[in-house]
């Protein structure tokens, strides 16, 4: 009888779980299906993506303060050219995606970095999260367009361009509304170029460097390098 009592408790607990829970347990135990495991986030993916996001967020905080004086000469040279420095706010998503190689990694990394930047305190407050979301989305769309299979330098640079374009659209609608068309065009081109070089190329180089240290041995990005050596 006591055994049966325990049994009913257990079955009740199972019934309390959602139906979806039961279905998700089945594929997670059989990780042999390649497509499923390639797109599924492991715990290490989540934690390391978060760590990269937070570390990037700290760099954002430094750049939030340093960007105005650093970019003033660019703005004076050609109005809108200061957007080229925006790349230092765009690399988080691309870098996270290049390391983790999972759907949503670019959005996640950029949003975590933006949250850290907003929590520590900056001039954009809540809207930092909006920027983070759109910029991450810009990079994410590019990686998705390659079906999450292009992690080479071309994919990284194009994702950086996507993030730059997203940043230009967001900034021009939220902050620089009354600007002339020429300003908007220069701003957009500068943002895309900055995104390609800083967010794209630099992130790709950083990923290669990280892989070479062996820190990414548990990720696809790290194993690829190890094979080549």
């Amino acid at each position: 009888m006591p055994a049966q009592g325990a049994d009913t408790l257990e079955t009740r607990a199972i019934h309390q779980m959602k139906g979806t829970k039961v279905t998700t347990t089945a594929p997670s135990t059989s990780t042999s299906t390649p497509l499923r495991s390639r797109f599924q986030w492991r715990v290490i993916d989540i934690v390391v993506a978060s760590v990269i996001g937070v570390a990037s967020g700290l760099i954002f905080v430094v750049w939030n303060v340093a960007s105005s004086p650093a970019l003033a000469p660019f703005a004076a040279l050609l109005p809108g050219l200061q957007a080229v420095g925006g790349g230092f706010w765009l690399f988080a998503g691309v870098l996270t995606a290049l390391v983790i190689r999972k759907p949503g990694a670019a959005i996640y990394g950029e949003v975590v970095a933006a949250s850290v930047s907003a929590l520590i305190g900056n001039q954009w407050g809540v809207l930092t999260l909006v920027s983070g979301l759109t910029q991450g989305l810009g990079a994410e769309i590019v990686f998705a367009a390659f079906l999450y299979a292009n992690w080479r330098v071309s994919g990284a640079v194009l994702a950086g361009a996507g993030a730059g374009l997203a940043m230009a659209i967001t900034d021009l609608t939220i902050w620089y509304v009354g600007a002339e068309v020429s300003f908007a065009i220069v701003y957009t081109i500068a943002a895309v170029v900055g995104g390609m070089l800083i967010a794209g190329l630099l992130s790709w180089l950083a990923t290669r460097g990280l892989a070479a240290t062996g820190a990414l041995n548990r990720f696809g990005a790290g194993r690829e390098i190890a094979k080549r050596v």
Binding site: R42, V43, I44, I46, V47, V48, S50, V51, I52, A55, V99, A206, L210, T213, A215, L216, R218
Partner: peptide, 12 residues
């Protein structure tokens, strides 16, 4: 960054 990724892997 290398240190923190290593620590993140351990933490996970």
């Amino acid at each position: 960054l290398v240190l923190s990724i290593r620590r993140g892997s351990k933490l996970s």
